[in-house]
């Protein structure tokens, strides 16, 4: 064996060992299982908690309201569009009170006059149509075309 190799071989062996050790310590578990990423992260993304329960969940208890809504223009809308996320309330009905928006601006999000949504939805000029009253004083939001006297 040439004398140069006698010193170089152990040196290379140490480098290779250190590289493998570093790699073993630094590459996280499940990295590269399915591609160039940590595969456990897929499960971590799945495990996040839900906030929106979905319409069917609401209808399990509030079936009367769900049925009522089906008879008018707001049929098919999800309860959580207006009432906000309801998963906490679904898990524990006593906790997590949902919101009941009563401001004119809330109805205006969909129904305020805007040329961009013309012909798509019933529109109201908020500045002109009974500006001092709340929409829900006359319109039942579950049955919007049933107008209170």
């Amino acid at each position: 064996m040439p004398p140069q190799l006698k010193t170089l071989i152990p040196l290379f062996a140490i480098f290779i060992f250190l590289f493998l050790l570093g790699r073993y310590l630094l590459v996280p578990e499940s990295f590269g299982e399915q591609g160039h990423y940590r595969f456990n992260s897929v499960a971590e993304n799945k495990d996040l908690s839900l906030q929106y329960a979905g319409r069917d969940a609401c209808a399990e208890c509030h079936d009367d309201k769900a049925l009522e809504m089906e008879s008018d223009m707001h049929a098919g809308l999800s309860c959580e569009i207006c009432h906000g996320p309801g998963m906490v309330h679904y898990d524990n009905p006593k906790a997590g009170q949902l919101i009941i928006p009563d401001q004119r601006e809330h109805c205006g999000l969909c129904h305020a006059t805007n040329l961009t949504r013309v012909d798509k939805i019933a529109q109201v000029d908020l500045a002109d149509h009974n500006p001092d009253q709340k929409c829900i004083e006359c319109h039942n939001p579950h049955l919007p075309w049933e107008i209170a006297e």
Binding site: L50, S78, I81, P85
Partner: peptide, 23 residues
Amino acid sequence: CTLCYHRISKGKTTACVEVCPTH
């Protein structure tokens, strides 16, 4: 956006689809 991966992998739809009033 994760396409609500925690929801769609449990058979639910995404939050944005859930609340879209006009589908």
